[in-house]
């Protein structure tokens, strides 16, 4: 698929900008947007450490693998906090947090497993720093893309998108469909938002509110956190609830909430694309076929 100007949107910006996106503000700094770079770095770092002061070494316990004495690659990566999602997207904050919190002694390992007060909301904050870093990176990628692909003719001004694509994606993370509304597709956004909300609410309902719990179902939670508003609600309201027993449909609830998170990933990507297409409209089928022939020749 190509845009009307014959640009292939699938053509990426390369590994450099991709890897630089893991350091909040670095891409903005490269773009010469120093104030924005400082805002990106400070917002992500502040959000991470606001949660880290409470959760600390618990983040190791919530990782995809735990640091141990095996010396394996997974263990080494875990040691530096690289197995914790989505915090790893805010690489410097997470790395410093891991270095400060790691304690390989039996006492340290015991502390990792100890639940603590306010860990639900603080776990959400550290995760939100990773998501925020991803949205800052998306914003910088959009700027890079505009500089690479958009070359207005002499005397013409650069067309502006209906909304910043990265902002649309970020809004959709918090409230599914809000990004579409901002990008100009309000009714479709409402339908997609309701779809995500209903599936998530159904998951919480059938599990009596216990489906979204980072402390107990950390791997599932990674998917559930893709719906930020839902996981924030769960962190504030349902997460701290005491469990009298295991609800009969807990497994169904966990799966539904995770599916809702994955659905919201699609919604976020679509919101980004809708805003993107206001500057780079998609070409007709004939133009696509011509581009395909050209590529094949």
């Amino acid at each position: 698929m190509v845009t009307k100007d014959g640009i292939d949107p699938a053509k990426g910006l390369g590994w450099g900008p991709f890897l630089m996106g893991f350091v909040p503000g670095l891409l903005q700094f490269q773009l010469g947007q120093k104030a924005r770079a400082a805002a990106a770095f400070l917002s992500c770092t502040a959000l991470f450490f606001a949660g880290w002061v409470v959760v600390g070494e618990r983040l190791f316990y919530w990782g995809l693998s735990n640091p141990d004495d095996s010396g394996s690659v997974a263990s080494t990566l875990s040691r530096f906090g690289l197995a914790v999602l989505p915090e790893v997207l805010n690489l410097p904050g997470n790395l410093v947090g891991a270095l400060l919190a790691f304690d390989g002694s039996p006492e340290g390992l015991r502390l990792e497993r100890m639940p603590r007060d306010f860990e639900h909301i603080c776990g959400f904050l550290t995760a939100a720093s990773g998501m925020l870093a991803a949205f800052w990176a998306a914003q910088a990628h959009w700027e890079l893309r505009l500089r690479r692909d958009l070359r207005p003719a002499e005397g013409e001004s650069r067309p502006a998108p209906t909304a910043d694509p990265a902002l649309c994606a970020a809004l959709s993370w918090l409230v599914p469909g809000l990004g579409h509304a901002r990008a100009g597709q309000k009714d479709k956004g409402v339908a997609m938002g309701i779809a995500v909300l209903v599936v998530f609410a159904l998951g919480l309902l059938v599990s009596s509110g216990h489906a979204v719990d980072r402390a107990n179902y950390m791997v599932w939670w990674i998917g559930q956190n893709l719906f930020g508003g839902g996981s924030l609600f769960a962190a504030l309201v349902t997460g701290p609830m005491q469990s009298a027993g295991t609800p009969i449909d807990l497994d169904l609830g966990i799966v539904l909430c995770t599916v809702a998170g994955l659905m919201n990933l699609v919604v976020m990507c679509d919101a980004y694309t809708v805003a993107e297409r206001s500057v780079f409209p998609v070409a007709t089928g004939a133009a696509n076929a011509a581009a395909g022939k050209e590529a094949g020749a």
């Binding site: 597709q185 009714d187 479709k188 339908a191 997609m192 779809a195 995500v196 209903v198 599936v199 159904l202 539904l256 599916v259 659905m263 699609v266 919604v267 990507c269 679509d270 694309t273």
Partner: peptide, 16 residues
């Protein structure tokens, strides 16, 4: 739930 997932999946290919 299948229908709700379908709304999100096919929504990507439509504008309204």
């Amino acid at each position: 739930v299948l229908f709700l997932i379908a709304v999100v999946v096919v929504g990507q290919h439509h504008d309204n």
